[in-house]
Every structure is written in C-alpha cells, then in structure tokens.
Design a protein around this nucleic acid. Structure first.
Lengths: 336, 336
DNA sequence: TTGAAAGCGCTAACAT
DNA sequence: ATGTTAGCGCTTTCAA
C-alpha cells in the first residue's frame, strides 16, 4: 500500500520557489528575461522536486508537439532487417536524443495509408522523416507542403522540387569503385546491377558507365539482380555464360557480391587473382567473407543524423537545400 | 499566400453535428451509451471535416499518454546493426501499429541515464519496453515498480521477481541443436560458447551440456568467443589444437560459425562430412554461406510483438506472468 | 523583470 | 442518452 507520489507540477515548483507559474515557465524555457538570482532559485526548486515538464500540457499550450515521426512504409518494414536502414534509424535516434525532440516510430501500412496521413497532418507531430526502399511509392511526397518532411533517398517524382531529401552519392560511389578496378589493371569489367526503377540502381549504373567511358572501356557487360545473394549468383552465371573473359566485377550490393563469389569459385576462378571484385554497402559480412570484400561504405548512421538535423532546422523555419548528398568511401580489402 | 486551414477541433465537429462536445467525445471513444443515429451523424461530421483528435489535449485530460517507450541503452544502440534486435524492434512496431499506442524510440545514453529515467517517470509515457544486450546493466529494473515495463531478455538481477520479461528459450534452443547433432551420429561434439556473464551464454551452454549429458557424451570440448566471426575462428583453432578429433560443432551464433567455417576449411576438413555444424540466430547469411548453415531460429519479430502485447495488457491493468518464454525452431540446412 | 489571467482541445464527473 | 461544467498542466499575451 504505497502512496504513489504525484508528478510535481509547474505550479508546485512556483509555490516552492515563491514565484509565479509564468516565471517558472520562463526559466524552464530558458527565456532570457529572468534575473539570474530568480532563475537560480527556480532551478533548485526544480531539482528538489525532481520536476519534469508534462509534454502533453506543454504541447497543448504551445501548439508544438516536439515529436518527429519516422515513417517506415510497411513494405519497407524489412527495413530493420536491412543493415543500411537499420543504421539510418540509429543515426536518427542518436541525433534526436541530443535535442528536445522525441522520435515516433511509425509503420505505415499500405492499406491504411490515409490513417497515417491523417495522423501526420492531425497536428500530432512537428515534422516527419520518411525512409523507404520503394522510392517510387512516395505517397508522402505531397505532405511536404503541409508539414516539414525529409526523405531518406532521392524521391522519384515528376515534380522534383517537392520535398527535401538526404541521399547518398550513388553515382560517385559506383564511379570510385569502378575506377579502383580500372586502376588495379582490370580491363574487362562486368557489373551486377540493381533494378533500374529506383534511384540507387540508376545512379550506380551511371557511375559505373561514367568510369568505364572515361577509361575508354566497353560497358556492355551488365546483368541485373534484386540485391539478394541468389540473384547475384544467377547474374554471375549469365555473365560467365557470355563467354567473354572478365577480370573485374562491380556488384551493386555486398549480397549480390556474395552470390557471385560462390559462382566464381565454382567456375574454378580465383578472387582477386582472376577476377577482382568490389561490392557495395560495407555490410557486416563484407569483412567476414573470404577473401574479405572491397566495398563502398555509405555512412548510413551519418545519413540518419543528417536527416534528423535537417528536419529540426526545417521545423525551426530555416532555409535548407532541397538535396543533401552524403559522400561514400571505398573500403579496401582483399577482393580488389 | 495560402490560408492554412486549421485542424478541425472536437468543438467544430459538435457544432456541425448539432450535438455537445461530450457526445462527440463519446463517439470518438466508442462509448456504448450513444444512440446509433447520433453516432452516425457525428461520424459523418467527423468524416466531412476530416477530424483527427488532438493527442496532447486528449492525453492532458485523460492523464494517459497512449505512448509506449522503447528504450535502447546506447551501448546497445548497435542493436540496430544486430539483426536479432532489429527484428525485435520491427515486431514491436508492427504490433503497436495495430493499437492506439504510439511508439517512442529512446536511445538511453549511459551518461545521462537519469535524464531518461525522469522522462519515463515524468508521466510522458504509459509504459516502457527495454531491450538490451547487457542484461547485466538493468539500470531500469527498479522502474518496474513505478511504471509498467517489459524487458527483452531475462534480466540479471538479485531480485528476480522484479519486472516482466520476454525471453527466448535459449536452453531448449541449444539442447535441440545439440540433439540434432547427436541424432545424426556425431559423438565428439565441440561447442563455441558465448560469454558466461549474460543469460544467453549461460543458458545455451546449459542446453548443450544437458543434451551431451543425456547422451552420455563428453562435454569438455568448450571454447569461448564473443559472437564475432574472428572469435569464432580463434576458438575453432583452439579446438582443433586440442588434438581431439571432432565430428560435430555447435556454435552460439551464426557469426561464430562463420569464423569456424573458414578454419575448418583451412584444415582441409569438410562440412558436414568431417564436421557437422549447427549455428544459432538464423541470421540473413545463414542461408547464404556454403554449405548453408543449419541453425536455431529465435523468431525475434514474434518476440517483439509479444513484448508489445504484454505491455499493453499491463497498462490495461491485467495480470500477466512475469516470464514469457518464446520457443525456438531448428532450421535444417546443409551443414548438419 | 514579473505576475494575472485566459485559454490550448479534450475528458469526466455530475446533472438532466 | 445527452448536455454542462470543470479542469488537465502549461504557455502566452497583457498589465503592472
């Protein structure tokens, strides 16, 4: 039978400090127009009572929620299984932990997408972050006009001036990876590309083509897959079946590369001796496979943090560039 | 210069429907004591105005927040890089999406842990979910008395009656894995165990010992590692260095198994021909390595969903068992 | 610089 | 079954 002590209110703090509630509110909100002495008294009262402002009340009165939604389309809910997105989420959460904002994780079911839309527009959040694999399905693009919103990944949209986004520099990532292959002497370089209906696939292919063209090399050795190891293996078989000997391979993901590894080994070829391989993602197994995989690191945590930083600035009414492109980094290991 | 239309309020709905605010509130909250006709009128008014209740106001008045915090200790923030925890988070989010609760993702920095504690106790959430690798550092165990709280993983605590938790059946998972090895004829089975300062490591070792003892086999072939591939490789080397020929290996994680794979191959031994291998986790690469890995699946998504289900019931004042143990499942592949 | 007072949008007695 | 009336705990003019 314990007495559950009620959370202290601003009013109790005011009483203890011998000031008005307005003053306590000012102190809590770090208003400049409060005497240092008064502020000190209030602060100790707050500490003694262990006072914590009630978010609901604050939000109701100020018409600000201090919450930022992180919207994850359900189809992308595997997002969590994807180390890249998982890290983006981590970056977002870490950055927001440093601010006064709270992170609202929202799984947006495709079927009840307007439940989500209404929640977002219903004044329940100050801003939203949208991460999605299906950059094509940006059902939320239009919300950008009603609510501060930043996308993870470049949105595919006719009206590309709509909305802010943070993306990774896929073109340069792929170009640098390919140039590395060229630099180490490869002349017949194939690529296992990703689907061409989404920006990453398009951009990486462009980066590869750019590098190949600059070096005056043939860029016809392209096969496609859907980022899985199985697809990587299948694509690699098709490449070998072409009968054109290759000495380099650029795969659009480490998983694709993992699939290719198996096929290359089956064919009795060595890595990097016969075929040098570069992957993309720098996922947790890239350093584990044998030989360890040279790959492109996309700094997903930093990307998430950047998204968080931008949404906060947008909420604060600052002007922010529509596009923010994060650099990538080639991680050299044994495979190339 | 567009007029930003204000979100409609309950009052506006009441006016449009020609009823009192109280009635609208009742309809919104599905109170049984409202005539069907009135309810219908109110519902259409709601639809026409596209009304969405204001959470802050509702929460302030009802003294319920409808938010559940998911606390991730910062040291465990790599949680997101860990497919197991990532899936738990996914399960939580998916389940909560079906309820009226909102998920608050909270990274708890170790340094300012009382900032987190105060936030949780400050009446900002109705309940909390805590996931952590370091089951030892349950700084939040005591909060269980003030706030409904559910832990992911068995908490290490003197007072084990403190707090509810959902755990995976590590003992049985390990036992079944080992029994499988025994069942296929292995008689000299080694294990690469995890650290013995956390429940999973302890429990899995117990499961392994149980199975070995039941079969009357020697259980001295134990080496330890910290769940990484490198540690797995090192442990495997130590095992082989003992000079005792083995025909089976149970690794406490798929990553540990991955490391062991490389060493086994180096030693010129075949899998499963010479040594049958069973891993633990069923992570995304278990089906990719060659030969594909027989392993223990822990149904993390279901675990997350269970945690969410339990916290909701706890908030609703229901009695719930302190411990909920989720079953595991042996996934048979090529390695054993 | 500080205080008084009026709400923010909703729920929950209480009355009818 | 429905309406009336107080607040919930805070911010924010407006005065002092």
């Amino acid at each position: 039978m314990s007495i559950q002590s009620q959370s202290p209110t601003l009013e109790m703090v005011a009483a203890r400090a011998g000031v008005s509630r307005a003053t306590v509110s000012r102190v809590v909100n770090a208003s400049p127009k409060v005497t240092a002495e008064v502020a000190a008294i209030v602060h100790s009262a707050i500490a003694e009572l262990n006072y914590v402002p009630n978010r609901a009340a604050r939000s109701l009165a100020s018409r600000k929620t201090q919450v930022i939604a992180l919207v994850v389309p359900e189809s992308t809910a595997k997002v969590f299984a994807d180390p890249f997105f998982a890290s983006v989420v981590q970056g977002v959460a870490l950055h927001l932990a440093e601010t006064d904002y709270t992170l609202n994780l929202l799984i947006a079911s495709e079927t009840k997408s307007d439940k989500t839309r209404r929640y977002l527009l219903g004044g329940n959040v100050d801003g939203a972050l949208v991460v999605s694999h299906h950059s094509g399905d940006h059902s939320y693009t239009d919300l950008g006009q009603k609510l501060p919103i930043v996308f993870g990944g470049r949105p595919i949209s006719r009206d590309s001036t709509l909305g802010h986004y943070v993306d990774v520099d896929n073109v340069s990532g792929a170009r640098v990876a390919t140039e590395h292959l060229i630099g180490r002497g490869c002349r017949s370089i194939a690529t296992i590309a990703g689907p061409q209906d989404m920006p990453p696939g398009l951009d990486r292919l462009r980066g590869w083509r750019d590098a190949m063209a600059s070096a005056g090399l043939d860029d016809s050795l392209v096969e496609y897959g859907d980022y899985s190891p199985d697809d990587g293996a299948a694509a690699m078989r098709r490449i070998l079946a072409r009968g054109v000997p290759i000495d380099g391979l650029f795969a659009f993901s480490d998983q694709l590369a993992a699939g290719a590894y198996a096929v290359i080994r089956e064919a009795g070829l060595s890595i990097p001796g016969d075929i040098a391989v570069v992957g993309y993602d720098d996922d947790r197994y890239a350093a584990t496979v044998s030989p360890t995989l040279t790959t492109v690191n996309q700094a997903p945590v930093e990307m998430g943090a950047k998204m968080a930083e931008i949404i906060v600035r947008l909420i604060d009414g600052e002007e922010v560039d529509r596009a923010t492109i994060m650099p990538t980094r080639l991680v050299l290991r044994e495979s190339a």
